[in-house]
Simulated assay, not measured.
Amino acid sequence: MSQTAHIPSHRKPRRSASKLALRAGVAGGVLSTIAVAGAAGPANAEPVTETIEMPTLCSLGADLSSAVAASAEASEQEALDQSLEAQEAAALEKAAKDAKKAKAEADRKAEAERAEKARKEAEAKAEAERVAAEARARASRDAARTQLASTSASSSDANPGAGSSNDGGSSAGSSSESTQVSSGTAASIVAFARAQVGDAYVSGGTGPNSWDCSGLVQAAYAAAGIDLPRISYQQSSMGTSVSLSNLQPGDILYWGSRSGSYHVAIYVGGGKYVGAQNPSTGVVERSLDWDTPSGAVRIL
């Protein structure tokens, strides 16, 4: 490499032929005008001293630079405006999507609230109907119990010797009276038991609206004026054992052994019994075939 290669050149850049011709033409035209004016004027005319300022290439370049800068600024402003318009359009589109999504969510919540309200109203209506049905059933049972009490009182007044033992030799009349009293007592027991159908089963329950098996049997016999023990195996140990083929209304049915029964109920006739079965069924009237008892005893 030459040792002088790094030294910058001080030569002036060559001017293009077109630019030189332009300047030469302008200068020539001006000089010609001056010459013609001088020849045509008087001899004693004063020399022209006014200086005409000629445009230079530097001023033309500055004007061109200004024009280019203005054009670039305009292009930049236009690009900025287009960018702002695009951003505004995107913001509008996003806002529209957000509004649509918010409306859909509001509609969904409103529908869910309407469904929840309808569900609660249905539950409240069902609960009101259930309470009303229970009230009607309770009123019916209370009426039946009142009628039963009145019937029992009337039967006692009409038969003052009911439930008492004979105080001497037996006779046909006393035998007939005993049979009539027993029949009336059994009817009272059956009527009381049937009046409790629909009540709840509660372990240890003794009424008036909830029972266990032995509590119901004890209360039914108490309504007829007969005292029974509280426990099921004690109840089934009383009276006389009878076969299931020779049952009479008012007989006590038991499940298990007679001296160790775990469940008792009251035979009501027609092959059916009433008993407080369990928490899921409550007090029911069922056929003997539904749950065949182990045996029966007769207290009356």
Rank of each mutant, 00 (worst) to 15 (best):
L84Y: 05
A104K: 14
L57R: 13
K103I: 03
A74G: 15
S75D: 11
A39T: 11
A128H: 06
G25P: 00
D142T: 03
G61Y: 00
R138F: 00
A17M: 05
R141L: 01
A40W: 12
A95W: 04
P42F: 02
T49C: 07
A133E: 04
V36C: 01
A74Q: 15
E121M: 11
A17W: 10
L60N: 03
A27Q: 10
A99W: 07
L64F: 13
G25N: 06
A124R: 11
A24V: 01
A128T: 03
D98M: 14
A96Q: 05
P55S: 10
G25W: 03
E88G: 03
A112N: 05
A17L: 08
T56A: 06
S32M: 09
R15S: 11
E105A: 15
A79H: 06
A133T: 05
R14K: 11
T49V: 02
D98E: 12
L84R: 06
G41C: 04
L22P: 00
G41Q: 11
S140Y: 01
A17P: 10
C58V: 12
E85M: 09
R23V: 15
S66H: 08
E88K: 11
E93S: 15
R145H: 10
A139F: 06
Q77F: 09
L92D: 12
E127Y: 03
E50K: 03
A17I: 01
E111I: 14
R130F: 00
A118G: 08
S16D: 12
L20A: 08
D142L: 12
S59V: 06
G41F: 04
S71M: 13
D81Q: 13
R145K: 10
K94N: 11
R138K: 02
N44K: 08
D142G: 04
T33D: 06
K125W: 05
D63L: 15
R141S: 15
A99G: 08
L84N: 06
G38L: 14
L57P: 01
S32E: 13
I52A: 12
E105N: 10
R136M: 04
E78L: 15
E129T: 05
A90H: 03
V48S: 06
D98F: 04
P47F: 02
E127K: 11
A106I: 02
A137G: 00
A128N: 05
K100L: 04
T146Y: 14
N44W: 07
S66L: 07
A132S: 14
E50L: 10
G25I: 01
E93R: 15
E105K: 13
R14G: 09
A67W: 05
A112E: 14
S83G: 08
S83N: 06
S83P: 00
A139E: 15
S65E: 07
L57G: 07
V48W: 10
E105R: 13
I34Q: 04
A27P: 00
S18C: 01
S71P: 01
T51W: 15
R141V: 00
R15E: 13
S16Y: 00
G28L: 12
E134P: 00
L92Q: 13
C58Q: 05
A133H: 01
P55H: 02
K94A: 14
A99Q: 11
Q82Y: 04
A132I: 05
P42Y: 01
D81M: 08
C58T: 07
S16F: 03
G38Q: 14
K97G: 03
